[in-house]
Write a protein that binds this DNA or RNA. Sequence first.
DNA 1: AGCACA
Length: 302
Amino acid sequence: MAGAGMHPYHQQWVPPPAPAVAPPVPVDTPNRLPADEIRTVFVTGLPGDVKERELHNLLRWLPGFEASQINFKAEQPMGFALFSTAQHAMAAKDALQDLVFDVETKSALHTEMAKKNLFVKRGVVSESSSIDQSKRLRTGGDYTHAGYAAPPFHPQPTPVWGNPGYIAPHPPPPYDPYGGYPVPQVAMTTPPPMPASSRYAPVQNNKDNPPCNTLFIGNLGENVNEEEVRGLFSVQPGFKQMKILRQERNTVCFIEFEDLNSATTVHQNLQGAVLTSSGRGGMRIQYPFFFTTPFHQLLLSS
DNA sequence: AGCACA
Protein backbone atom coordinates (compact mmCIF):
# COMPACT_ATOMS: atom_id res chain seq x y z
CA MET A 1 0.00 0.00 0.00
CA ALA A 2 2.93 2.18 0.28
CA GLY A 3 3.31 4.94 -2.21
CA ALA A 4 0.15 4.20 -4.12
CA GLY A 5 -2.19 6.81 -2.69
CA MET A 6 -0.27 10.05 -2.51
CA HIS A 7 -1.81 13.15 -1.14
CA PRO A 8 -2.86 15.25 -4.06
CA TYR A 9 -1.22 18.34 -2.73
CA HIS A 10 1.93 16.57 -1.81
CA GLN A 11 4.82 17.01 -4.13
CA GLN A 12 5.60 13.57 -5.29
CA TRP A 13 7.48 10.72 -4.04
CA VAL A 14 10.65 12.22 -2.71
CA PRO A 15 13.41 9.73 -3.22
CA PRO A 16 15.63 8.99 -0.28
CA PRO A 17 18.52 11.37 -0.62
CA ALA A 18 21.42 9.12 0.00
CA PRO A 19 23.06 7.05 -2.66
CA ALA A 20 25.20 6.04 0.29
CA VAL A 21 28.15 5.31 -1.92
CA ALA A 22 30.00 8.52 -2.56
CA PRO A 23 29.13 11.57 -0.55
CA PRO A 24 30.00 14.42 -2.86
CA VAL A 25 31.19 16.70 -0.09
CA PRO A 26 33.88 15.57 2.31
CA VAL A 27 32.29 15.45 5.71
CA ASP A 28 35.22 16.52 7.79
CA THR A 29 37.33 19.11 6.16
CA PRO A 30 40.62 19.18 8.00
CA ASN A 31 40.98 22.87 7.48
CA ARG A 32 37.94 24.35 9.04
CA LEU A 33 38.94 27.95 8.60
CA PRO A 34 37.06 29.56 5.78
CA ALA A 35 39.53 31.80 4.13
CA ASP A 36 36.91 34.41 3.58
CA GLU A 37 35.56 34.71 7.08
CA ILE A 38 36.37 37.95 8.79
CA ARG A 39 38.19 37.45 12.03
CA THR A 40 39.64 40.91 12.36
CA VAL A 41 38.31 43.68 14.54
CA PHE A 42 38.52 47.26 13.43
CA VAL A 43 39.23 49.57 16.34
CA THR A 44 38.80 53.31 16.44
CA GLY A 45 38.66 55.76 19.25
CA LEU A 46 42.29 55.26 20.14
CA PRO A 47 44.08 58.37 21.33
CA GLY A 48 46.19 60.05 18.73
CA ASP A 49 49.44 59.25 20.46
CA VAL A 50 48.68 55.59 20.96
CA LYS A 51 51.54 53.19 20.55
CA GLU A 52 51.20 49.91 18.86
CA ARG A 53 52.41 48.03 21.88
CA GLU A 54 49.76 49.67 24.00
CA LEU A 55 47.06 48.18 21.87
CA HIS A 56 48.89 44.91 21.70
CA ASN A 57 49.30 44.71 25.43
CA LEU A 58 45.62 45.28 25.80
CA LEU A 59 44.60 42.70 23.28
CA ARG A 60 46.99 39.93 24.07
CA TRP A 61 44.86 38.67 26.94
CA LEU A 62 41.85 38.09 24.82
CA PRO A 63 41.12 34.53 23.82
CA GLY A 64 42.15 33.76 20.30
CA PHE A 65 44.18 36.91 19.81
CA GLU A 66 46.77 36.58 17.11
CA ALA A 67 48.05 39.92 15.98
CA SER A 68 47.33 43.60 15.93
CA GLN A 69 48.41 46.65 14.08
CA ILE A 70 47.80 50.35 14.00
CA ASN A 71 47.69 52.39 10.85
CA PHE A 72 47.51 56.13 10.93
CA LYS A 73 45.31 57.85 8.46
CA ALA A 74 45.62 61.59 8.77
CA GLU A 75 46.76 61.39 12.37
CA GLN A 76 43.83 59.18 13.09
CA PRO A 77 44.85 55.81 14.45
CA MET A 78 43.03 52.83 13.08
CA GLY A 79 43.57 49.61 14.93
CA PHE A 80 43.22 46.13 13.56
CA ALA A 81 43.18 43.01 15.63
CA LEU A 82 43.28 39.54 14.17
CA PHE A 83 41.84 36.58 16.03
CA SER A 84 41.97 32.91 15.34
CA THR A 85 38.28 32.60 14.60
CA ALA A 86 35.40 34.84 13.78
CA GLN A 87 33.79 33.95 17.08
CA HIS A 88 36.80 35.09 19.01
CA ALA A 89 36.88 38.25 17.00
CA MET A 90 33.26 39.01 17.66
CA ALA A 91 33.65 38.30 21.34
CA ALA A 92 36.59 40.65 21.43
CA LYS A 93 34.65 43.24 19.53
CA ASP A 94 31.92 43.15 22.14
CA ALA A 95 34.37 43.11 24.99
CA LEU A 96 36.21 46.14 23.73
CA GLN A 97 33.20 48.10 22.68
CA ASP A 98 33.08 51.41 24.56
CA LEU A 99 36.02 50.44 26.68
CA VAL A 100 37.71 53.48 28.13
CA PHE A 101 41.14 53.07 26.68
CA ASP A 102 42.74 56.10 28.21
CA VAL A 103 41.50 57.50 31.48
CA GLU A 104 43.24 60.81 30.94
CA THR A 105 41.77 61.54 27.56
CA LYS A 106 38.61 59.63 28.32
CA SER A 107 38.86 58.08 24.92
CA ALA A 108 36.52 55.17 24.51
CA LEU A 109 37.01 52.54 21.89
CA HIS A 110 34.66 51.84 19.09
CA THR A 111 34.87 48.46 17.47
CA GLU A 112 33.44 46.84 14.40
CA MET A 113 34.23 43.79 12.43
CA ALA A 114 36.78 44.76 9.85
CA LYS A 115 36.13 44.67 6.17
CA LYS A 116 39.24 42.67 5.45
CA ASN A 117 41.43 40.50 7.57
CA LEU A 118 44.69 41.78 8.90
CA PHE A 119 47.51 40.49 6.80
CA VAL A 120 50.06 38.66 8.84
CA LYS A 121 53.25 37.50 7.35
CA ARG A 122 54.20 34.02 8.31
CA GLY A 123 57.41 33.68 10.22
CA VAL A 124 57.90 37.31 11.02
CA VAL A 125 60.94 36.74 13.12
CA SER A 126 63.16 35.24 10.49
CA GLU A 127 66.01 37.62 9.86
CA SER A 128 67.15 35.70 6.82
CA SER A 129 64.78 37.24 4.39
CA SER A 130 65.94 39.92 2.05
CA ILE A 131 62.52 41.41 1.90
CA ASP A 132 61.70 44.79 3.24
CA GLN A 133 61.30 44.40 6.97
CA SER A 134 61.39 48.03 7.84
CA LYS A 135 57.92 48.60 6.52
CA ARG A 136 56.43 45.79 8.44
CA LEU A 137 55.38 46.80 11.88
CA ARG A 138 55.97 44.41 14.68
CA THR A 139 52.43 43.55 15.28
CA GLY A 140 52.13 40.47 17.38
CA GLY A 141 54.54 39.08 19.86
CA ASP A 142 53.82 35.49 19.15
CA TYR A 143 51.58 34.50 16.36
CA THR A 144 53.33 31.22 16.55
CA HIS A 145 50.83 30.73 19.29
CA ALA A 146 51.19 27.17 20.33
CA GLY A 147 47.76 27.16 21.81
CA TYR A 148 46.48 30.52 22.75
CA ALA A 149 44.52 28.91 25.50
CA ALA A 150 46.87 30.23 28.11
CA PRO A 151 46.50 33.94 27.83
CA PRO A 152 46.99 35.11 31.37
CA PHE A 153 50.61 34.11 31.58
CA HIS A 154 53.52 36.03 30.28
CA PRO A 155 55.13 34.19 27.43
CA GLN A 156 58.52 35.32 28.55
CA PRO A 157 59.60 35.60 32.15
CA THR A 158 59.42 39.33 32.17
CA PRO A 159 59.62 40.83 35.63
CA VAL A 160 56.84 43.25 35.11
CA TRP A 161 54.47 41.76 37.58
CA GLY A 162 55.53 43.88 40.46
CA ASN A 163 55.82 46.92 38.32
CA PRO A 164 52.75 47.17 36.22
CA GLY A 165 53.88 50.11 34.16
CA TYR A 166 50.93 51.83 32.65
CA ILE A 167 48.45 49.32 33.87
CA ALA A 168 46.22 51.02 36.35
CA PRO A 169 48.17 54.15 37.26
CA HIS A 170 45.38 55.12 39.59
CA PRO A 171 44.79 51.85 41.34
CA PRO A 172 41.16 51.60 42.24
CA PRO A 173 38.94 52.25 39.29
CA PRO A 174 35.32 52.88 40.15
CA TYR A 175 34.44 49.31 39.86
CA ASP A 176 32.42 47.04 42.02
CA PRO A 177 34.28 43.78 42.38
CA TYR A 178 31.29 41.58 42.74
CA GLY A 179 28.76 43.67 40.99
CA GLY A 180 27.16 41.86 38.16
CA TYR A 181 29.48 38.95 38.11
CA PRO A 182 27.66 35.71 38.46
CA VAL A 183 29.86 33.34 40.33
CA PRO A 184 29.47 30.12 38.44
CA GLN A 185 28.20 27.03 40.03
CA VAL A 186 31.02 24.93 41.20
CA ALA A 187 30.65 21.28 40.61
CA MET A 188 31.34 19.99 44.07
CA THR A 189 32.73 16.59 43.61
CA THR A 190 35.41 15.05 45.73
CA PRO A 191 37.23 17.34 48.08
CA PRO A 192 40.54 18.48 46.64
CA PRO A 193 43.91 17.46 47.95
CA MET A 194 44.79 19.30 51.10
CA PRO A 195 48.07 20.81 52.10
CA ALA A 196 50.32 18.50 53.98
CA SER A 197 49.77 20.33 57.17
CA SER A 198 46.07 20.49 56.43
CA ARG A 199 45.83 23.65 58.41
CA TYR A 200 43.80 26.68 57.65
CA ALA A 201 43.98 30.17 58.95
CA PRO A 202 41.47 32.91 58.45
CA VAL A 203 42.42 35.29 55.69
CA GLN A 204 41.17 38.64 54.75
CA ASN A 205 39.79 38.55 51.29
CA ASN A 206 37.17 41.21 51.25
CA LYS A 207 37.81 42.42 47.80
CA ASP A 208 38.17 40.17 44.90
CA ASN A 209 38.01 40.36 41.17
CA PRO A 210 35.74 38.60 38.76
CA PRO A 211 36.33 34.89 38.50
CA CYS A 212 38.59 33.57 35.83
CA ASN A 213 40.70 30.50 35.30
CA THR A 214 43.75 32.00 36.94
CA LEU A 215 44.31 32.45 40.63
CA PHE A 216 46.47 34.89 42.46
CA ILE A 217 48.02 33.59 45.65
CA GLY A 218 49.06 36.18 48.15
CA ASN A 219 50.45 36.23 51.64
CA LEU A 220 52.92 33.48 51.02
CA GLY A 221 55.82 34.98 52.86
CA GLU A 222 59.30 35.59 51.59
CA ASN A 223 60.66 32.28 52.72
CA VAL A 224 58.04 30.10 51.20
CA ASN A 225 59.31 27.04 49.42
CA GLU A 226 58.26 26.97 45.80
CA GLU A 227 58.13 23.22 45.76
CA GLU A 228 55.71 23.22 48.61
CA VAL A 229 53.48 25.61 46.75
CA ARG A 230 53.75 23.55 43.62
CA GLY A 231 53.16 20.38 45.52
CA LEU A 232 49.90 21.71 46.82
CA PHE A 233 48.52 23.18 43.65
CA SER A 234 49.83 20.85 41.00
CA VAL A 235 47.70 18.05 42.34
CA GLN A 236 44.52 20.06 42.17
CA PRO A 237 42.20 18.99 39.39
CA GLY A 238 42.58 21.14 36.34
CA PHE A 239 45.96 22.55 37.28
CA LYS A 240 47.87 23.80 34.29
CA GLN A 241 50.82 25.89 35.31
CA MET A 242 52.04 28.21 37.95
CA LYS A 243 54.48 31.03 38.25
CA ILE A 244 55.93 32.22 41.50
CA LEU A 245 57.12 35.72 41.94
CA ARG A 246 59.57 36.85 44.54
CA GLN A 247 59.00 40.43 45.40
CA GLU A 248 60.63 42.69 47.92
CA ARG A 249 59.32 41.26 51.13
CA ASN A 250 56.55 39.28 49.71
CA THR A 251 56.04 36.33 47.46
CA VAL A 252 53.05 35.88 45.25
CA CYS A 253 52.05 33.25 42.81
CA PHE A 254 49.84 32.90 39.75
CA ILE A 255 48.22 29.63 38.95
CA GLU A 256 46.39 28.79 35.80
CA PHE A 257 43.76 26.12 35.56
CA GLU A 258 42.12 24.37 32.69
CA ASP A 259 38.85 26.05 33.25
CA LEU A 260 36.84 28.26 35.46
CA ASN A 261 35.40 25.49 37.55
CA SER A 262 38.75 24.13 38.60
CA ALA A 263 39.95 27.56 39.55
CA THR A 264 36.81 28.40 41.43
CA THR A 265 36.92 25.17 43.35
CA VAL A 266 40.46 25.76 44.47
CA HIS A 267 39.66 29.36 45.23
CA GLN A 268 37.08 28.16 47.70
CA ASN A 269 38.63 25.07 49.13
CA LEU A 270 42.19 26.16 49.67
CA GLN A 271 41.42 29.63 50.87
CA GLY A 272 43.55 30.25 53.91
CA ALA A 273 45.53 27.06 53.62
CA VAL A 274 48.74 27.23 55.58
CA LEU A 275 52.03 26.11 54.12
CA THR A 276 54.73 25.05 56.49
CA SER A 277 57.43 27.05 54.79
CA SER A 278 55.37 30.20 54.83
CA GLY A 279 55.77 32.11 58.00
CA ARG A 280 52.71 34.10 57.27
CA GLY A 281 49.63 32.21 58.19
CA GLY A 282 47.02 31.38 55.63
CA MET A 283 47.44 32.12 51.99
CA ARG A 284 45.09 34.54 50.34
CA ILE A 285 43.58 33.32 47.12
CA GLN A 286 42.13 35.86 44.77
CA TYR A 287 41.30 36.26 41.16
CA PRO A 288 43.87 38.50 39.59
CA PHE A 289 43.09 41.81 38.07
CA PHE A 290 44.85 42.09 34.80
CA PHE A 291 42.27 44.15 33.20
CA THR A 292 38.90 44.21 34.62
CA THR A 293 35.46 43.85 33.30
CA PRO A 294 35.29 42.86 29.68
CA PHE A 295 38.07 40.34 29.62
CA HIS A 296 36.82 38.26 32.41
CA GLN A 297 33.49 38.03 30.78
CA LEU A 298 35.26 36.40 27.93
CA LEU A 299 37.13 34.11 30.19
CA LEU A 300 33.95 33.10 31.88
CA SER A 301 32.76 31.50 28.71
CA SER A 302 35.92 29.61 28.06
C1' DA B 1 32.34 57.88 10.56
C1' DG B 2 37.03 56.90 9.51
C1' DC B 3 39.12 49.88 6.95
C1' DA B 4 45.37 49.27 5.83
C1' DC B 5 49.16 46.27 5.82
C1' DA B 6 50.85 42.48 1.81
